[in-house]
C-alpha cells in the first residue's frame, strides 16, 4: 500500500536473511513445537501403518511403506500451514509492526517467512527419512533429490497458503478454523492414506484440486515406483499451484492491515 521502492538488492538479501534467521532461531529454541510436530507424523506412520496394514489391502506393497510418502507430506502440510498462520501471533504482539516500520517491503517479509517455513519442513522430513530406513525403504541419489525438491516446493506453497489465511484472520482462535478447514482436508484428500485410482468420481474430483495430492503421488513415484501420474506431471501441477497461491498470498499480505 505504501511505496517502498529504491532498496538495493544487497539490503533486500540481508533482510531476507534476517527474517529467515529469526524464524529458525525461534523454531530451534521452542523445543515443544519441534517435538510435537515430529512426533505426530511418526505416530500416524506406526499406529495407522501397522493397524490398517494388518487388514490385507490390495495396494501392491506393505501398507506402512505405501503411506510413507503420505506421512512425509503430512509433516510438511502441518508444519508449513501452521508456520504461515503464525503471522497471526506476530501481529498479536507488536513484532510485525516493528518489521513494518523498517524499510522492508511486504513482499520481502512474505518471502522471508516462506524461506523459514521451507527450512523447518526440511528438519522434520530429515527425521522421517531416517525412520524410513528402519522400515526398509531404500533411497538413491535421484530419489533423495526428488524428495528434496518436492518437499521444498510443497512447503513453499503451503506456507504461502498459511500466510494468506493468517493475513485475513485476526484472532488466535482462528487457528482452530485453519486446522479444520485447511490442514485436515489437505491431508485426508491427498491420497496419503489410500490410493486415489478407484475413488468415486466426486471424491476423485476433490483430490485433484489438492496440491498435496501431486506431492504424495510424486514421492510415491520416486520412493516406491507406484505413482498414478508421472513424476514430471506431478511436479508441473505442483509448481502451478505454488505459483498461483504465492501470487494470491503476496497480494493478501500487501493489503493486510499493519495495525
Amino acid at each position: 500500500m505504501l511505496s517502498t521502492k529504491n532498496l538495493s538488492s544487497n539490503i533486500v538479501l540481508g533482510q531476507l536473511y534476517a527474517l529467515w534467521l529469526r524464524e529458525i532461531k525461534v523454531f530451534l529454541r521452542e523445543r515443544s513445537r519441534l517435538v510435537a510436530s515430529t512426533f505426530t507424523p511418526l505416530l500416524w506412520l506406526i499406529v495407522i501403518g501397522s493397524g490398517l496394514g494388518s487388514t490385507n489391502l490390495q495396494i501392491g506393497t506393505d501398507y506402512e511403506k505405501f503411506i510413507f510418502p503420505g506421512i512425509i507430506c503430512m509433516s510438511v502440510i502441518f508444519t508449513s500451514v501452521f508456520f504461515g498462520a503464525y503471522i497471526i501471533w506476530d501481529r498479536k504482539f507488536d513484532f510485525l509492526k516493528s518489521v513494518m516500520v523498517a524499510p522492508s517491503s511486504r513482499t520481502t517479509v512474505f518471502i522471508g517467512k516462506t524461506l523459514g517455513g521451507m527450512t523447518t519442513s526440511l528438519f522434520q522430513v530429515a527425521i522421517i527419512l531416517v525412520v524410513g530406513i528402519v522400515l526398509g525403504i531404500n533411497y538413491d541419489a535421484l530419489s533423495l533429490l526428488q524428495i528434496l525438491s518436492i518437499v521444498l516446493i510443497l512447503s513453499f506453497c503451503l506456507t504461502s497458503l498459511g500466510l494468506t489465511f493468517g493475513s485475513y484472520i485476526e484472532s488466535l482462535e482462528g487457528f482452530q478454523l485453519i486446522i479444520s478447514f485447511i490442514v485436515f482436508p489437505l491431508f485426508f484428500l491427498s491420497g496419503a492414506l489410500f490410493p486415489i485410482d478407484n475413488l468415486p468420481a466426486w471424491l476423485k474430483l476433490i483430490t485433484l484440486v489438492d496440491p498435496a495430492t501431486y506431492s504424495v503421488d510424486a514421492l510415491r513415484n520416486s520412493i516406491l515406483h507406484l505413482g498414478t501420474y508421472s513424476f514430471e506431471y506431478d511436479l508441473a501441477v505442483l509448481l502451478l499451484f505454488t505459483f498461483i497461491i504465492t501470487i494470491i498470498g503476496i497480494l493478501s499480505f500487501r493489503r493486510m492491515k499493519a495495525v
Partner: peptide, 9 residues
C-alpha cells in the same frame, strides 16, 4: 538487535 540491524541494511 542483530536481526533488526540486518532489516535496516
Amino acid at each position: 538487535l542483530k536481526i533488526h540491524a540486518l532489516l535496516y541494511g
